[in-house]
């Protein structure tokens, strides 16, 4: 017997709009991991990630009526998640609570958030030791908000055009920001990559 096909995002959204809590939960389950990753890549504090995830979904479900479906639910919720994380970071910076992360610090605080599950499934992850993960996390924290944003969105598979639409910039600007973000990360990481080789 054929398994019942999964409802599309648009079907779930329609159902959510007529008050289905079960379908709201289904939509949440479909995107929770993805949204958590996008937020974590913008904001490293694990406690803040949970709070920002809640805020993102509450905003998304409350504003579901305004979703036109032109760009897809994934793009729409990504924009909400990124803006929510950006607002949080701006508030934190204004209050002077933004922690200065040292690249030399490779303690467990940042490393604890790094769970390398099912390493065999992803060859990329085999490259990443826990210590290297901490170093990269600290290097990402040193990037400007704009650079962090583009590198995070690019990593989720969005094209330059899509990132440009989400961040209200030109695709060329996205390319340029990615170039400088990578150059900065490479500058920080090269000694560690070479150190690992030796």
């Amino acid at each position: 017997m054929a398994a019942p096909s999964e409802p599309s995002d648009n079907e779930l959204i329609k159902s959510c709009l007529s008050g289905s809590q079960a379908h709201a939960r289904r939509l949440y389950d479909r995107y929770k991991n993805y949204v958590a990753r996008v937020i974590r890549n913008m904001e490293n504090d694990p406690e803040a990630v949970q709070d920002l995830l809640q805020q993102t979904f509450i905003k998304a479900f409350s504003g579901l009526k305004s979703f036109k479906g032109d760009s897809g639910f994934k793009t729409w919720i990504t924009t909400i998640a990124v803006n929510t994380a950006k607002n949080y970071r701006n508030k934190k910076t204004r209050r002077g609570r933004h922690p200065k992360v040292s690249i030399d610090h490779t303690g467990e605080e940042n490393g604890a958030a790094l769970e390398l599950k099912d390493e065999s499934a992803n060859p990329q992850k085999q490259l990443l030791t826990k210590e290297m993960g901490t170093v990269i996390g600290a290097a990402l924290d040193m990037l400007s908000e704009e650079h962090r944003e583009v590198i995070s969105l690019w990593n989720e598979g969005f094209s330059y055009d899509e990132i440009g639409a989400m961040t209200k910039t030109l695709p060329q600007t996205v390319g340029s920001r990615l170039h400088y973000a990578r150059a900065q990360l490479q500058k920080i990481l090269t000694p560690y990559i070479k150190g690992n080789k030796e």
């Binding site: 929770k32 958590a36 949970q50 995830l53 509450i58 990329q124 993960g133 996390g137 990593n155 990578r182």
Partner: peptide, 24 residues
């Protein structure tokens, strides 16, 4: 370096999703 950064960005953060849903 780009592969390493990608690997770091792709790691799933640990979030208590059920607890989050209880608030949502």
């Amino acid at each position: 370096s780009s592969d390493l950064v990608s690997a770091r960005l792709s790691v799933q953060p640990s979030v208590d999703f059920d607890k989050a849903w209880q608030h949502i």
